[in-house]
Simulated assay, not measured.
Amino acid sequence: MHSIPDLNIPSARPLLIAFTLLILSSCATSNFSPNTPTRMASDVPDHFLVCTHANNSTCEPKPDEGCRNPMIDPLDGTKLELVRSNGEYGDYKVPDNRYGVERKELLRLECSTGRVVGIVQR
């Protein structure tokens, strides 16, 4: 008969606690803010494209792929960096003075289409 390891051993507790904290912290990475856009963005393309890491080529966003990183402006190649998402929407950091987004704001995109939803607070 096999015995079950005793987790009451003092040396096993720190490992169990560390493992639990690691699992919990990996689940909290989205940190998506449900706040509604404060205003519309300016000078944005019809939609942003997905940048593939393999050869920096671009492709259309797809509904079953979630929020991708980075997204690319097809008009001038500006890259947007994903900060947070909930699967349906992604909030992206943009270069300074682009699209009307200010320092403590992000550009929200619809992940399945790459279309701009608006500007949200960071």
Score class of each variant (00 low, 15 high):
93 K>D: 04
102 E>A: 04
107 L>V: 11
109 L>W: 09
105 E>L: 03
96 D>Q: 11
107 L>W: 07
112 S>L: 07
94 V>F: 08
93 K>M: 07
83 V>G: 01
89 Y>N: 10
86 N>A: 08
104 K>F: 02
108 R>K: 10
114 G>F: 06
111 C>E: 03
80 L>T: 02
114 G>N: 09
92 Y>M: 05
84 R>Q: 13
92 Y>T: 01
98 R>C: 06
88 E>N: 13
95 P>T: 12
81 E>Q: 12
91 D>V: 13
77 G>W: 12
97 N>M: 13
106 L>G: 00
101 V>T: 09
87 G>T: 09
80 L>E: 02
87 G>C: 07
79 K>T: 14
102 E>V: 00
108 R>D: 06
91 D>Q: 11
80 L>D: 00
115 R>S: 15
113 T>N: 08
95 P>A: 11
86 N>V: 07
81 E>S: 12
88 E>K: 15
102 E>S: 02
96 D>C: 00
106 L>I: 04
88 E>M: 15
93 K>R: 14
94 V>H: 07
84 R>S: 14
83 V>Y: 02
82 L>D: 03
84 R>F: 05
100 G>M: 08
78 T>M: 15
111 C>T: 11
87 G>Q: 05
91 D>N: 14
111 C>P: 07
106 L>P: 00
105 E>Q: 15
111 C>R: 06
79 K>Y: 08
89 Y>S: 11
95 P>F: 08
82 L>Y: 03
98 R>M: 12
85 S>R: 08
88 E>C: 10
101 V>A: 03
91 D>S: 08
105 E>S: 02
105 E>P: 01
80 L>C: 09
96 D>L: 07
88 E>A: 14
113 T>R: 05
89 Y>P: 01
113 T>K: 10
109 L>V: 14
92 Y>W: 13
80 L>R: 07
106 L>N: 08
113 T>Q: 03
108 R>E: 11
104 K>L: 06
91 D>E: 04
103 R>A: 06
105 E>T: 02
103 R>T: 13
